[in-house]
Computed example of a mutant assay.
Amino acid sequence: MRSVASRRSFMSAAGIAAIASLSIAAEPAKASRPSCNPRLTRLIALYDRADAQCERFDREVEMPARDACRAAIDALPSEPPPPHVESRTTFENAFGETARLSTSVPGLVASAPRWLSDPAFAGPELEDWRQAHREILEANEKREALIAAQTEKRRAIEAEKRSRFRIEAIAARSADLARRRDNLADAVLATPAANLTDLAVKLEFIERLVSPGQVTEHEFTFISADIRRLAGEA
């Protein structure tokens, strides 16, 4: 019901509104027009009450709880990641320099398994080079495990804060309220218009629900059915 309409559905709804407006204008004076269907009036009143309840719950309960929870989480101390590690073994690089590998080079760590499994890099003259890569792979695996443990610990702490502020329960209640409001909106649209007064009331209701650029096939279907019914086509 809240999805953005295609140009076709918007134009169709706009055309329906224009036709209905012309028809209503052609009716007798307002004092002699038929009154609105009491069921339609009651459903709109129930919708307005449900909509106000949603806004009040959002303003007074959900947003304050979420803000307080976020502030509590932001206030938690940040645990720095474990330091990078260098290989114990050194080797002579292509420039004749003594080199040492480090986990701080992501590309090196990622390519190490491929180099170690490549027969072209086997041989006693490259054993120090190969050993340095083995050490850096082992060191990186241990470092990644520590980071994963830190992440899991942080998630557990954040989950405890969300539980403390009842975020999931509040979100579920908010969803229930919104679902009830939306069901009432659909009930208003689904109530057959018995006359043009009912149709005008439903059009005003739609204008309160969505802006012209957001009218969808959902609203169009109900209003189209009303107009056809009033025109004797259904």
Rank of each mutant, 00 (worst) to 15 (best):
residue 144 E to C: 07
residue 21 S to R: 13
residue 107 G to T: 04
residue 4 V to Y: 09
residue 201 V to Q: 01
residue 206 I to A: 01
residue 58 D to Q: 14
residue 210 V to M: 12
residue 87 S to R: 06
residue 89 T to I: 07
residue 50 A to D: 07
residue 149 A to N: 06
residue 84 H to R: 02
residue 18 A to I: 10
residue 79 E to I: 15
residue 58 D to I: 04
residue 70 R to N: 13
residue 127 E to K: 15
residue 60 E to W: 03
residue 10 F to Y: 08
residue 166 R to D: 15
residue 182 D to E: 02
residue 24 I to F: 00
residue 203 L to H: 00
residue 197 T to F: 02
residue 102 S to N: 06
residue 32 S to I: 10
residue 48 D to V: 04
residue 95 F to M: 10
residue 20 A to R: 01
residue 55 E to V: 12
residue 16 I to D: 00
residue 165 F to C: 03
residue 154 R to I: 04
residue 154 R to A: 11
residue 95 F to G: 08
residue 184 L to V: 02
residue 103 T to H: 04
residue 2 R to N: 15
residue 220 F to G: 03
residue 211 S to Q: 13
residue 71 A to H: 07
residue 109 V to R: 05
residue 121 F to W: 14
residue 179 R to G: 04
residue 219 E to A: 15
residue 22 L to M: 11
residue 230 L to F: 01
residue 158 E to Y: 11
residue 6 S to P: 01
residue 58 D to F: 10
residue 131 Q to S: 12
residue 98 T to N: 05
residue 49 R to Y: 04
residue 10 F to P: 00
residue 104 S to P: 03
residue 92 E to Y: 03
residue 218 H to Y: 14
residue 55 E to R: 15
residue 94 A to Y: 12
residue 27 E to A: 02
residue 188 V to S: 02
residue 153 K to A: 10
residue 214 Q to E: 14
residue 195 N to H: 07
residue 128 D to Q: 12
residue 139 A to Y: 06
residue 82 P to F: 06
residue 211 S to H: 11
residue 134 R to M: 09
residue 32 S to V: 11
residue 68 A to N: 07
residue 88 R to V: 12
residue 229 R to Y: 05
residue 138 E to M: 11
residue 55 E to W: 07
residue 144 E to F: 01
residue 129 W to H: 08
residue 61 V to D: 08
residue 129 W to N: 05
residue 11 M to E: 13
residue 39 R to D: 14
residue 103 T to D: 04
residue 119 P to R: 05
residue 120 A to L: 09
residue 143 R to D: 05
residue 200 A to K: 00
residue 189 L to D: 01
residue 123 G to D: 00
residue 135 E to I: 05
residue 224 S to R: 15
residue 200 A to V: 00
residue 106 P to H: 05
residue 167 I to P: 10
residue 205 F to T: 05
residue 206 I to M: 03
residue 227 I to C: 07
residue 224 S to I: 02
residue 105 V to E: 12
residue 106 P to N: 07
residue 6 S to T: 15
residue 166 R to N: 09
residue 142 K to M: 10
residue 162 R to G: 04
residue 110 A to W: 08
residue 64 P to F: 08
residue 184 L to M: 01
residue 211 S to A: 13
residue 8 R to T: 11
residue 198 D to G: 00
residue 126 L to I: 07
residue 13 A to S: 13
residue 217 E to M: 11
residue 158 E to S: 09
residue 36 C to E: 14
residue 104 S to K: 13
residue 175 A to D: 13
residue 74 D to W: 05
